[in-house]
Design a protein around this nucleic acid. Sequence first.
DNA 1: ACACCACTACGTACGCTGTACGTAACTACG
DNA 2: CGTAGTTACGTACAGCGTACGTAGTGGTGT
Lengths: 246, 246
Amino acid sequence: MPAGGRSAGPEVIWTRPERTGRGPRPAHTRAEIARAAVRIADADGIEAVSMRRVAAEIGCGTMSLYNYVPRKEDLYELMVDAAAEEHDLSALPTGDWRADMLTVARDTRDLMRRHPWLTRLLSAAYGFTPNTLRHLERCMAALEGLDATGGAKLELLSMINGSVMAFVSNEVAAAERARAVPWTPEEEQAVRNAYLTAELGSGRYPHLAAAVAENPAPTGPHDYEAAFERAVGRLLDAFDHGGSTA
Amino acid sequence: MPAGGRSAGPEVIWTRPERTGRGPRPAHTRAEIARAAVRIADADGIEAVSMRRVAAEIGCGTMSLYNYVPRKEDLYELMVDAAAEEHDLSALPTGDWRADMLTVARDTRDLMRRHPWLTRLLSAAYGFTPNTLRHLERCMAALEGLDATGGAKLELLSMINGSVMAFVSNEVAAAERARAVPWTPEEEQAVRNAYLTAELGSGRYPHLAAAVAENPAPTGPHDYEAAFERAVGRLLDAFDHGGSTA
DNA sequence: ACACCACTACGTACGCTGTACGTAACTACG
DNA sequence: CGTAGTTACGTACAGCGTACGTAGTGGTGT
């Protein structure tokens, strides 16, 4: 069972020991590498995270990275885990599961705002890491007071997570996209708003246009805030009223 | 205002005319290009969609593609639009908005299963295209009977979409990830399940482990189906009971 | 004590990517 | 009818992930 050596079979990075003891002491750690990758992604976007760039950031040869991480995909997984470590839920559970879930939702939203690349990686399925499991466990503990099956609780958490992801995705969309393009986030936002306004004004989408006119686009951070709280509240209502449908 | 020419300023592909009339008649259309890209992504995954590959697929030089699409990102947008054209909601609205929303959710889920790359592209913010707007309009029409503000209706649609995305993401995760790795989806799934089972058995996650034990992992398609229907039902309940929270 | 070998480190190289730029042919408009 | 805007596309460049080879290091088994 090789530790950092070249791998062949199917494996998850978390089952591969970071170090066996044989050979020279590694000059770096997974945690250090993950932090470097997170720093790069925060600064220049997830697409700036390359093996060469991360290696340069920690000061080693490009190919040395492969002693720590068998594939770039596993580097992504390390990043998700490093980000998940930032969850601050030390106050949970308080005994009020509804309040706790709102706290969880806000905490997750802040985390994803701080690391916009998270929505991309999570939706690409790097979901279960040691720290995300720890986070989930704490959430489940906070749901002890909710009268529902374990499955229902898991589903609630999954839906909260999904909704937060969708929300933050929308929020950071223009900024993220502007990175790939030679103009500013404001220009990007402006040009897309112009398109949308023009389309809605065309008369081809009467119901949609009416709804948007009645409730103009949530561009300000304050509008996002309110919509977010409303959405999470509704989700909790759905589980509070005890109701599965059929 | 150039049509296919080299672009400079900020713009959205949908405001760029496909053809002005000047110069030789283009040998291809945006729709044809989008269909080719979709075919490739369906067959070999989104990361197989390269300008060279798409160009080869429609039988033209690589750089000729840039006459139709200023950047690769815009090609993604064309793909989202092409996929959104597959929505079959011709039966809507029926007058029963609740039933209609369930239909919408199922239709969207099927679409995303057919094109697993959609979850990636949508969460990366290629959200508003002509066909997605048409789709949204039809959904809003189906919600006419719901007693709620336009804003609330938009939020309902957004939450349904987000939940469906999260669901399908989880469902196709292993298969998608296996594409980047020299082993089969089954091996990938097995290795990740083994890790999860081992962790849950470690005693470090008592609440989580209990919930999973009580309600074993939804690996079968039948389990996914049931969980999906439940989740959408709950979401609709939240809006049906009329409740915003505070 | 010493040989062995797993391990770290890393340079080179290959095939791939997006796309800037230059050039040649073509056609609708002034 | 010239000319400007367009289509088509080859070449080239910088960057990517990573297979592979090789050199050095240090715990382990004899």
